[in-house]
């Protein structure tokens, strides 16, 4: 089977990729291709020009920088994230999210860069990255830029990526993860090979005595056109005691932030119900992982 691609350019280096994009402004970047090739075949992108960055091995892998920042190369595959030691030690819930994508084969080809550049609300790693206040590093003809993930999403399928820019890394600063415990719950119709009906990522930082919520962050996939944070809920329980009332308040408050819609996949009411239930469960689990004690 052949793809209806007009022209394919294979970049040998990051800078070559940028100049190829400059020379061919109509070209799209292809990383693992697990979104792009599907669109080419479906006709939406038939006849397009592609710049392949798949060969840029420098953009693969996870490293821990001296200041404690975790740097994830944009081309790192879901499988590599899910089984990476650094990830599993400091942010295992990102590993959970990466491990929940599609099936083993898709996890081998799909990249975390693609999962954030596609601007898709159901992207499984996106909500966890949002809940971690990740920073996205991009490089274009004018050099590098760093974009906090909360500013990254413009609208459905559109992100803050300028022409000629390639996303190079995803950074998780130390203060974003140190002392936090979290988890990701993907709600889908099947246990594998499925797109999230709703994804919920929570992480929490408890007081030293484990009795108070010092900080909590919750992000959803499919609660709106792009991944979103439930900031009202977060604010409502910060500083509160770890107890069932806090849990109820948290799950009630997320309703102020989320805005799921009815589609043929699920109704707004059902998604809303799920999101409140998942808020409760994911927070409970995050607290448990933090060693928290319910009063």
């Amino acid at each position: 089977m052949k793809y209806d691609i007009k022209k394919l350019y294979e970049a040998g280096s990051l800078d070559e990729a940028i100049s190829l994009l400059e020379e061919h402004p109509e070209a799209k970047i292809i990383a693992g291709g697990s979104d792009i090739l599907i669109s080419v075949r479906a006709g939406e992108l038939a006849g397009c020009t592609l710049v392949s960055i798949y060969g840029l091995d420098d953009l693969r892998g996870v490293t821990l920088e001296t200041d404690g920042t975790i740097r994830i190369g944009s081309l790192t595959s879901f499988s590599n994230i899910a089984r990476n030691e650094i990830i599993n030690k400091y942010i295992p819930y990102l590993g959970e999210a990466a491990g929940s994508v599609g099936g083993p084969q898709v996890r081998n080809i799909g990249t975390i860069g693609g999962n954030t550049c596609n601007g898709v609300t159901s992207a499984d790693t996106a909500s966890t990255l949002l809940a971690l206040d990740a920073i996205l590093e991009v490089k274009g003809k004018d050099g590098y830029r760093s974009i906090p993930i909360k500013d990254w999403y413009i609208k459905s399928k559109l992100v803050d990526l300028k022409p000629t820019e390639v996303q190079t890394s995803i950074l998780i600063p130390k203060e974003s993860y140190e002392g936090y415990f979290g988890n990701y719950y993907k709600y889908s119709m099947r246990h594998a090979m499925d797109i999230a009906t709703c994804g919920c990522s929570v992480n929490v930082k408890l007081s030293a005595d484990k009795k108070t919520v010092e900080d909590v962050r919750i992000a959803y996939g499919v609660a709106g056109p792009v991944p979103l944070r439930a900031t009202t809920a977060e604010a409502a329980v910060k500083g509160r005691a770890v107890d069932l009332d806090m849990l109820e308040l948290f799950s009630e408050k997320v309703k102020d932030d989320i805005n799921p819609r009815t589609s043929w996949r699920a109704s707004k009411e059902f998604r809303t119900h799920l999101m409140t239930e998942l808020a409760r469960r994911c927070l409970t689990e995050s607290i448990r992982r933090s060693g928290g004690i319910f009063q």
Partner: peptide, 20 residues
């Protein structure tokens, strides 16, 4: 409900081990 969350937790733990 508590009991139930314990179960969910076990399930999640299990899942995270698998991904690890």
């Amino acid at each position: 409900r508590r009991e139930h969350y314990d179960r969910t937790r076990d399930e999640l733990n299990h899942k995270s081990q698998e991904t690890a």
